[in-house]
Amino acid sequence: MIIVTTDFVPGKEIKELKGFVKGSTVQSKHIGKDLLAGLKTIVGGEITEYTEMMDEARQKAIGRLVEDAKSKGANAVIAMKLETSAVMQNASEIIAYGTAVVVE
Rank of each mutant, 00 (worst) to 15 (best):
T5L: 05
G32V: 02
V102P: 04
I95F: 12
T99K: 14
G38P: 05
A57L: 04
I47M: 00
I62N: 00
G38Q: 01
Q89P: 15
E67S: 13
T6S: 15
E104G: 10
G98R: 08
K12L: 05
I94R: 00
P10T: 08
K29E: 03
N75G: 10
I95H: 11
D55M: 10
K40F: 01
A37T: 12
M1W: 04
D7R: 15
M1A: 08
E49R: 03
N90G: 11
G63H: 14
M1L: 12
L39V: 00
E93W: 04
G73I: 14
Y97L: 13
T48R: 02
G63M: 10
K40C: 00
G23A: 08
E46T: 10
V4N: 00
K18I: 07
L82R: 06
I31M: 08
I78S: 10
G19Y: 12
T51Q: 04
V77Q: 01
G38Y: 03
L82G: 08
A79M: 15
A74P: 05
V101I: 15
A79Y: 11
K12C: 11
Y97N: 15
A61T: 03
S28T: 15
K72Y: 08
Q27G: 06
E13H: 05
N75S: 07
V21K: 00
L82E: 06
S28L: 04
M1Y: 07
V21H: 02
S92G: 14
I47S: 00
I47H: 01
I14F: 10
M54K: 07
T99V: 15
L39T: 01
G19V: 13
A86K: 15
E46K: 10
Q89S: 14
M80C: 14
L39R: 03
G32L: 08
K60C: 05
S85E: 05
I78L: 12
E46R: 12
E83N: 13
Q27Y: 10
K60M: 11
G38M: 03
K40D: 00
S92Y: 13
K72R: 12
K72F: 14
L35E: 00
K12W: 04
I94W: 01
E56W: 12
E67K: 13
V21P: 00
I62R: 01
K33M: 00
S92M: 11
K29C: 03
M88W: 01
V43F: 05
V26S: 06
G73S: 03
I78V: 15
M80T: 13
G23E: 03
L35W: 07
T51H: 02
A37S: 12
P10L: 03
Q27W: 03
K29Y: 14
K70P: 07
A61F: 08
D34S: 09
V43P: 01
V101A: 07
E104Y: 06
